[in-house]
């Protein structure tokens, strides 16, 4: 900067040319980078398509796939998709409630509440999800008969929500702690009680902060929801497995299930990506 001021007058035309040349160069570089990016993306999509075609085409060509079986049973298997989605969505919704309670407990200054919340998180995170599911289904009714009357789908949803709630507790705690202290001070200066501050100031912002994380958990949940097939909930995997064994067509049936789970996670990942971008944008506007 200083040197420009020094030789300012004399070097002006030269500088002009330099600026124009460099602008053109920047444009050229940008263009070639865009072209490269486009080529990269095209190659990426192309490679995926070729890989899929190779796998599917190879299996069909090798006569490993019974297309007649697929045609006859695909409808029955695919009917499991709404069940899988409802189980996952409901479980996540309830898990959010568990997570908020867990996070509030983990941030509580009261030792008993803090201990209870920590106990919950430790218990759930320290045991396998499949053990929790089987325990809720097989063992709880022996402790309290009332559990036996609960439909298995509700038990499955509860087990998944209970588990994910514990993992999401830490996410929510981080979300709550991300609210600047100044806001708490401002709220108390306005005469708000702690509870009011939590409800009106902190939680609304915290939930917004953790929304992308909830999306991630939902995608993971879609896959873990397959575990409730163990309870006889007729979701995607249950249907695929029964039909596969019944007809000695495990390859086709499991292939269908795998592809559906994969496609579902891809769709929700794209939605999740968009949501994240949109939220980032509105953050910038703030």
């Amino acid at each position: 900067m200083a040197s420009v001021g020094h030789h300012g007058q004399m070097q002006a035309p030269v500088d002009q040319v330099r600026i124009e040349t460099s602008a053109a160069m920047v444009e050229a570089v940008a263009q070639s980078r865009r072209r490269e990016q486009r080529r990269f993306r095209l190659t990426f999509v192309g490679t995926w398509l070729i890989l899929c075609l190779l796998i599917v085409g190879g299996l069909v060509a090798a006569n490993k796939i019974d297309l007649e079986f697929l045609g006859r049973w695909q409808q029955f298997i695919l009917t499991g998709i709404p069940v899988t989605i409802v189980v996952s969505a409901t479980s996540i919704a309830i898990a959010v409630v568990f997570a908020i309670l867990g996070a509030l407990g983990r941030l509580s200054p009261r030792p008993v509440i803090y201990a209870i919340a920590s106990f919950y998180v430790s218990l759930v995170r320290g045991t396998p999800l499949i053990v929790q599911i089987l325990f809720i289904y097989l063992a709880l009714p022996q402790i309290w008969e009332g559990f036996a009357g609960v439909p298995t789908i509700v038990l499955g949803i509860f087990a998944l929500a209970f588990n994910y709630g514990a993992y999401m507790t830490e996410v929510f705690r981080a979300g709550i702690e991300a609210i600047p202290r100044g806001q708490l001070e401002a709220a108390s200066a306005l005469g708000m009680t702690d509870r009011m501050t939590m409800r009106r100031i902190i939680l609304p912002q915290a939930i917004r902060i953790v929304t992308p994380a909830i999306g991630n958990e939902f995608i993971a949940m879609i896959k873990d929801s397959a575990l409730v097939s163990l309870l006889g909930v007729q979701e995607l995997l249950w249907r695929a497995q029964r039909v596969g064994t019944q007809n000695f067509r495990a390859l086709e049936a499991l292939l269908v299930a795998a592809v559906v789970y994969w496609v579902l996670t891809i769709i929700f990942s794209v939605l999740q990506d968009r949501l994240e971008k949109r939220m980032a944008e509105s953050d910038r506007r703030l």
């Binding site: 409802v86 969505a89 409901t90 919704a93 309830i94 409630v97 008969e145 009332g146 036996a148 009357g149 609960v150 439909p151 509700v154 949803i157």
Partner: peptide, 21 residues
């Protein structure tokens, strides 16, 4: 809304079952 409805339904179902037992 959808989520709220699901949760409400579930709660209702659980309460009903509790009553049955």
């Amino acid at each position: 809304h959808g989520l709220a409805r699901h949760t409400a339904l579930l709660t209702a179902a659980m309460l009903a079952l509790g009553a049955c037992t």
